[in-house]
């Protein structure tokens, strides 16, 4: 598999970050960084990472199913993650999540027909003091209201 020069550089750095014989440590970071570039974890990627770190594809698959941020199915171009955990819930995070679902016409872990948006109801993302919070891909948005969410999503839609 070929990756961007930037990602190759990251891989190279990762493979040199752990003690000799411990290259398996690079597995999860490699999968996540690669997913960011190619959109999802494919069988081809699993094989590639397994080869580079010297373990079997089975070992990679076993690990990847454990981590909630690793996806074997494609997400939307904009992955909207709404926190409904306790501190956000106290600021109506649950209603915000429902609003987002209605707005995009999709539910938990679904993707819009045009592939632009996906939604996920997520657990605490570390923005509890600035609730309710969402993340679109890796970008945090704090103190989100339904109106702010509409603006944000409409803006992203136009940007396409």
């Amino acid at each position: 598999m070929t990756f961007s020069a930037q990602l190759e550089a990251r891989f190279e750095k990762l493979l040199n970050s752990y003690p000799p014989g411990r290259q398996r440590s690079a597995m999860v970071p490699m999968l996540l960084y690669a997913q960011d570039e190619i959109g999802q974890i494919t069988d081809e990627l699993v094989n590639e990472v397994a080869t580079r770190i010297g373990c079997t594809p089975l070992q990679v698959n076993e690990v990847l199913s454990y981590y909630s941020m690793l996806h074997t199915k494609p997400l939307g171009k904009y992955h909207v993650q709404v926190c409904t955990n306790i501190s956000c819930l106290l600021h109506d995070g649950d209603k915000l999540y429902e609003h987002a679902c209605r707005k995009l016409g999709i539910g938990h872990k679904e993707v819009t027909a045009d592939g632009q948006f996906s939604i996920e109801e997520v657990e605490c993302m570390g923005a509890c003091s600035w609730a309710p919070a969402i993340q679109v891909n890796y970008d945090f948005h704090h103190y989100v209201t339904p109106e702010k969410l509409d603006q944000l999503l409409d803006g992203l839609r136009k940007k396409q």
């Binding site: 955990n85 306790i86 501190s87 605490c124 570390g126 923005a127 509890c128 003091s129 600035w130």
Partner: peptide
């Protein structure tokens, strides 16, 4: 790995 709900200080 700050992830205890309610916690956002290490960030």
């Amino acid at each position: 790995d700050e992830s205890e709900p309610g916690t956002c200080k290490d960030r």
